[in-house]
Amino acid sequence: MADGNGKGGVLTAVKGMGTHLRNSQVWNSIFRPGSPARADSTDSPRNRAYVVMNNVLYHLHPVKVKRHGLKVSYVLCLGGLSFFLFIILTVTGIFLMFYYRPTSPAAYFDLQALATDVAFGQLVRNMHRWGAHLMVITVFLHMTRVFYHGAYKPPREFNWVVGIILLLLTLLLSFTGYLLPWDQLALWAVTVGSNMGAYAPVFGEQVSFILVGGVQITADTLLRFYVLHVLFLPFVIVIFMAVHFWRVRKDGGISGPL
């Protein structure tokens, strides 16, 4: 022990266990051939292709991309970051759902308790809120970069339209979430926002009535916005995102350089 062999022995033992684990059937059943996590993996062009192709990643990425698509200055990662923010929002949102009841007055006091009684509660709530604001910004900037690159030109016209729908859905998600804290900011911001909609000709009042669940915002609106926010809109946006990503690939990958 004193001669230092003990440390080396432990290291070797751990290493041996690692190798054993990485050669096991369980491990190899999880990581498909080509994955760098496998013990037998080597770095070869074929295995680099397999990392993507033999993997759920293949749903999002082709094996190879045009070289200019790598330049961060080209896509600025904005689409990808929008998607990443969406994922963060889903994870943090699920966390919040454990502590939140969409009724008046419980909603407000649940959020108060979250800040004081729940470990990392306030942090997660902050991440959810700032993440939502950031997502609106990244989606908007993503649209702008697509425009300036002319990346909506054939054959990508329809993906641009899908994109606009995604933008609308993002705004709606953000707007419905805005009411949920049930404080003065939430109540009156949503009141002002939905009053604008009520001015719409012909169906404006009906649409506003359905969304709000009455002629003006009440505790019923809270439940309505909650269901839209945690279930309906995420469901719809995921479908449109799937179409969006699929079209990016089917339309020939990222558009060409300027």
């Binding site: 008046s104 407000y108 800040a115 953000s174 049930w182 404080d183 003065q184 939430a186 109540l187 009156w188």
Partner: peptide
């Protein structure tokens, strides 16, 4: 921290009342 103002009050509209910033 994310803001949490006073409890929602239908009888007291803050001045100014602003929509969410993207609107």
């Amino acid at each position: 921290d994310a803001p949490l103002l006073e409890f929602a009050n239908f009888n007291q509209q803050p001045n100014p009342s602003k929509a969410p910033w993207y609107f």
